[in-house]
Amino acid sequence: MGVRHMGRGSTIFADPGKLPDRETLMNQVSPLPRTRTRSPLIAFQGVNHAFGSRPVLQDINLTIGQSEFVCLVGPSGCGKTTLLRMVGGLLAPQSGEVTFGGAPVRGPAKEISFMFQDYSKALLPWRTAAGNVSLALEAVGMPVRERGPRILELLTKVGLGAHADHYPAQLSGGMQQRVQIARCLAQEPSVLLMDEPFGALDAMTRQALQDEILRLIAVSRTTVIFVTHDLEEAIYLGDRVVALYPNPGRVAQVFDVDLPSPRNQLTTREHPEFLRLRRALFDFIREGET
């Protein structure tokens, strides 16, 4: 994993030989932590969980503020997805508590939307793009005649206005994930949980969708918890990056991302702070693995 990121990251520079060494990077400390005035919306308090005899999460304490974009990174087995499922109400922690808006999460909530990793299994193959978005509207009991215009509006928002009648099998992976985004937006969520949503997409499509998500949530001020393997993606998207250690999953370190918004695929990824974080995060994950 590490090799892939180094390889890809270094192509950003015209001359990789001029890369500042690690010491220089680590000493260029920006004025962090940035003061945050956001009220906590989601909180993990002393969360422990095990699958059978294998502990997957150990003493997780984490708060996530209103309208914050938090990325969870870490190697396989660090419990990223488990954390996400707990917020989504799909899984109850064995000990400790997960709260949403101050109240313990007891099950899936209307305000919390979940975007799944595997688009080929998260859409209903027997329904068109419009039909899949409609499912979320049917779930909240929206009358039939109001659904049509709302579906078209949502699909247009994600750039699929012309593909409403297509079945998932007729759409590319990126387009299928756009349908999933539209279905999530149909819920009008205040929290969006995303489980490696772009992991299976090619690099160009992934970057387009990253910008798409940032654009969409900038308008709605949605809180996002985003699970990813990709460190650069985490820095690019997040206000904060939470790095986890595996076996059992523990919060290792939290990195504040102080990069100008809106993000830009070229200038953000060339920003010294981006490079500093990338190096710091990469070293950190590598240390965790050894």
């Binding site: 989504g88 799909l90 099950g107 899936p108 799944f116 595997d118 299994k121 209903l124 049917e138 779930a139």
Partner: peptide, 17 residues
């Protein structure tokens, strides 16, 4: 697929739905 069951839970579909 477990993900479809998760989906029905996240969308809070009734048992009939």
């Amino acid at each position: 697929d477990a993900q479809l069951i998760d989906l029905s839970r996240v969308l809070r579909l009734s048992t009939t739905a």
